[in-house]
Nucleic acid binder design. Structure first.
Lengths: 254, 254
DNA sequence: CGAATGCTTGACTGCGGTCAAACGATGTGG
DNA sequence: CCACATCGTTTGACCGCAGTCAAGCATTCG
């Protein structure tokens, strides 16, 4: 159990920069100079829940790292229907992969209160200085590819999966991402999203989302209480939702 | 009418390279050297309908331009359900924005018989030689952003729109893209997709897709006959489907 | 001319949306 | 400290959009 503490506790004590570094290193090794670039990101900025970090159609904000809290990308139809594309979790990057003169393709909105760090150095490492920091550029590109893959997962969920499958699949995705960031406690992870937010991500009504969640609870497959989810039967969830281990650690396969 | 001929006919006689050049110039001006890079793309490769251009999880193929015919990106679930993410139209690029050492995130499949051209020069212009060809690199990046925006449109369609809205929205998207490539004849454009393929793109069953299509026909809003679509009331289609002019020509707005 | 492929329609079912109400937790002002 | 408002969750009743099953029709092609 001492071993477990040693393995686990450091993850909870990491600074946001260390968290990002941990994630990047899963995609390839970094030199000391590259790691320094990551560790020196800043300064911190605070946003309250509901704050708009960037607006669909607007100019891109300064590149940032999400240090704590959750956010999401979304668009809102003219009649008020909302679709969430993806959740942004601690250690995720905002606007780092974007051209500075481009236009934002979606809103980015704080789901909870959150902190961000400036990440202009990473943006430069990817754009102008890609030659100087090849390991970092490649790790960042792999991270972008993983994000893209999750967008495709989202399309499959919405287009071809039932409500039950969608929820199972999303919970597995969130668990996998939080685990990679050192924010999961075994099968348990924080869940700050309201059912309305989950419904808007999964293309469901609040009422139906709630019913599907009740079913997962009745079947003792998922527990959701006190702002935390526990995956009681991850294998079952993966098989019903056709979940694949995610592009988070593709390099492991080679 | 002579004027009309002069305006329109050239588009139908363009080589694939000229078609791509036309599209890229909508995103920013190119130097003569950059245009040459585009015009010298090749050689041609032929594929029959149904051919797999690349496989989900496999190594990325050589960068290519689609010269003629239609293709699509898709994933297939283990039980056979298929979800199409996007259609690839003439002038679109395949694998140009991808890291060479990455893994494909989806299958690319030929929907019709098609021709492709080698586009390694474009890939280099974006990766290693971005400094030498800034105009081209920026136009290519804008094209990638437009593709990304269409992926987000797809998510909104699947998550928050009815079958009727989805079909209307997709038809407008296809029309806009083909028009930008010089492949539309006013409100009319070729439609080589079967209803099954459309259904797999829109997350619907074949039967329901057919019913929604019948409705659009009865209402005299869309005509679909002989492998061609005519948008009889584009404004109505745009308003019911909440369609926005697309990221195809964002630079016009500034 | 038969077989395959794609389109169309009918009948029925069911997943998921809508409307409505009640409940619990949290917060706030009198 | 309680009255009350707000927000999120839960449940019931009902409905309708879209899926399934099945059959028939139209084209194309070998």
């Amino acid at each position: 159990m001492t071993v477990q503490l040693q393995l686990r506790q450091p993850a909870f004590r990491m600074t946001p920069q260390e968290r990002l570094l941990r994630r990047l290193r899963r995609f390839g090794s970094l030199t000391a100079a590259e790691a320094d670039l990551v560790l020196n990101c800043g300064p911190t900025e605070n946003h309250r829940a509901g704050a708009e970090l960037r607006r669909d159609g607007g100019a891109p904000p300064r590149p940032r790292i999400l240090a704590s809290g959750w956010a999401c990308y979304q668009r809102v139809l003219s009649d008020g229907r909302r679709q969430i594309f993806a959740f942004i979790l601690p250690g995720d990057l905002i606007g780092v992969f974007q051209q500075p003169n481009a236009v934002c393709l979606a809103d980015a909105t704080a789901v909870t209160a959150l902190e961000t760090l400036g990440a202009s150095a990473l943006h430069r490492a990817l754009a102008s200085d890609a030659g100087r920091y090849p390991g970092l550029a490649s790790a960042l590109n792999a991270m972008a590819a993983a994000e893209e893959s999750m967008l495709l997962d989202q399309i499959v969920r919405l287009g071809r999966q039932t409500a039950y499958e969608r929820l199972a699949h999303l919970l597995l995705e969130l668990h996998g991402r939080l685990e990679a960031a050192g924010l999961a406690d075994g099968p348990r992870f924080p869940m700050p999203l309201t059912q309305e937010t989950l419904a808007d991500a999964l293309g469901l009504s609040i009422v139906h989302l709630n019913r599907v969640l009740q079913q997962l609870r009745r079947e003792r497959v998922v527990e959701l209480r006190g702002g935390a989810v526990t995956l009681l039967d991850p294998d079952y969830l993966a098989s019903v939702s056709d979940h694949h281990p995610a592009g988070l650690d593709e390099h492991d396969r080679y």
